[in-house]
Amino acid sequence: MRKHWLIGGFAGVLALSGLAFVQGGGAGADSPTTLSDFQPIAFPHDQHAGSEPGQNNMDCQFCHFSAERSVDAGIPSVSTCWGCHQAIPGTNNPQEVAKIKDYLDAGEPIPWVRIYKIADHAHFPHMRHINAGLQCQECHGEVQTMGVLEPQRTGLPAVFLGQDRVWGGDNMGWCIDCHRQPNEDGVQQASTDCSVCHY
């Protein structure tokens, strides 16, 4: 008799887990196999911001223009991309570059998939961090070496992703670790008062 319960319970666990599994999109079941499966345009950060030979060594803030004066780093407008690409068809993926004109003509924004996100209940001011002298790479990783940004490829802990929570880790803890670092006077270099971010 009791065995019925165990079997039933186990089956229930499998069923429910399976359901959740499918709902959650699976672990890698939907991962793109080609460059452009994830982002609407296969925009490679390394080609634009990288410093290898043949790469363009653009400053992050050329496109992410409001990082130094706003809470928001900013995403370049379609016209910003077109500003260069109207004359530069690109050599690696010209069909991807051509998509910019399609969006511009249609008057539609490019629907980038968000990679870096901090939860809505935390207010993160970009400009304070830039002003404190942080490099973008400290939190965002060596983006200038990355191709197309996709969640599993960034490998950074400090993100809540729309689709998967990478590492399920202590995202706030990562921020706190840096805030707690002592500066040269031995005092913690940034505030760990809850209300500087949570209000």
Partner: peptide, 30 residues
Amino acid sequence: AGVAASGCSTSEVEKLLPYVVAPEEITPGV
């Protein structure tokens, strides 16, 4: 526990929508 183990994830992906042509007087976040 079984349900919890597979995680309650949403299949929604968050999008970032830029301006098509950015207005001069608007700085996002300001």
